[in-house]
Amino acid sequence: MKSFFTHPLTLRVISVVIVFSFWEYLGRIPISPAFPTFLETMAALWEMITDGSMAAVYPATFQPLLIGLFISSFFGIACGIFMGLNHRAEWFGAPVFIVLQSAPLAALIPLLTFAYGIGLTSKVLTVCIMSMPVIVLNAYSAVRHTPVTMIEMGASYLGSRWQIVMKIVIPAASPVIYAGLRLGAAMGFIGAILAELLITPTGIGDLITYNQSIAEYAKMYAAIFSIMVFAVIFIEILERTEYIFFRPDKRVSQ
């Protein structure tokens, strides 16, 4: 009986029930006229899914997000691996990305809007600047810190430089590269929503700001709820792809 109550799944369900009940309770006091209950929010979510307003806005959000994430992953990983392998590239590139990673790059958005207008380009670039630094730095440090004996092993069995990079360095770095992709994707979502709230309301950002302006708070909360759930699922799927493509050993242990 005790094992049933401490089972991870049971506890997870209990925890979700507690949080949503607490939300419901706060909404019923109510703590603010702008704070809908959990059930109102879910009803609004169901309404928005069934009347198609949700499906109508998601493509607009995903377009800059996916383009931006693709660009940052592709160039970010390539750039990071190159910096990890080449000392000259490291010397020139690494400090820039170290500064950029700690910098609040969101502050560049007004500049981007000024230069590229309020269209797709600015939003794609917002996603890129938010997600790229962490992807580059993770790829770079993963490659830079490949275990020395692994490389010695490759050398002692007469692996060429290319073989050692492709068969040892990159697979060994893949967990950290993927961790970077995950963090980068999370930052990309932050950037995509920020761009929609800041540059011009489109997609899910439009749904949030519009419903806020007409005081349809349940719908506003439902839109936010949906994008949060979406982001978490997206990143979860991304994590799974690593096991499939690079690390069969992790799939065994799961």
């Binding site: 004996t149 092993m153 697979p171």
Partner: peptide
């Protein structure tokens, strides 16, 4: 020549 490593140097993947 072939080398046997102290920490095995096996590829975990």
């Amino acid at each position: 020549r072939a080398f046997v490593f102290q920490d095995f140097a096996l590829m975990p993947w």
